[in-house]
């Protein structure tokens, strides 16, 4: 049974590591792996040393796991190792899908607005206005996530 204090130490470590990783699904997946690894290693140590204090054991586990900085550094190295060609072709496909999805949403939204207002809002004007909003949103997101 892991104590509340030990759980807090685990969560502190996880939070520190999360802050150093990008905000994406791959990093979330990595964090889930780390959390389960730490629990497994700690329970194993508790079974082997039932009389030892949990704070000492969790410290040993975290020492074995490595610092958040070491994990983030390895994560960055593995991202760089991705084949450049695969990354660029994947990126083109990703942007193409995003563009098509944005166009579909804009046309649909413009049609709905034009229909429910019985034509008071011009369909073409609605498409243009919504497209402008979509482009602004795209730029803001790209700036926030550091995309080029």
């Amino acid at each position: 049974m892991i104590s509340g204090e030990t759980e807090r130490m685990i969560e502190d470590f996880i939070k520190k590591t999360s802050r150093l990783l990008p905000d994406n699904f791959a990093a979330e997946d990595l964090i889930a792996d780390l959390r389960s690894h730490i629990h497994e290693a700690l329970n194993n140590k508790i079974r082997g040393n039932p009389d030892e204090s949990q704070s000492k054991l969790i410290q040993e586990v975290l020492d074995d796991v490595g610092t958040p900085e070491e994990i983030a550094e390895e994560y960055a190295i593995e991202q760089v190792h991705e084949p450049e060609q695969a990354r660029s072709s994947g990126r083109v496909r990703y942007y193409a899908i995003r563009l098509v999805a944005a166009l579909i949403v804009v046309v649909l939204a413009a049609w709905i607005v034009s229909t429910i207002t019985n034509g008071a809002v011009n369909f073409s004007l609605a498409v243009v206005v919504l497209m402008v909003f979509a482009v602004i949103e795209w730029f803001v997101r790209a700036k926030q996530s550091g995309e080029s």
Binding site: T17, L30, D33, D64, V65, I77, E78, E82
Partner: peptide, 15 residues
């Protein structure tokens, strides 16, 4: 190895 650094490698192999 620092055990936490295995996971980025495993994730790349998965990719």
């Amino acid at each position: 190895v620092k055990e936490g650094t295995l996971y980025p490698i495993l994730h790349r192999l998965r990719k």
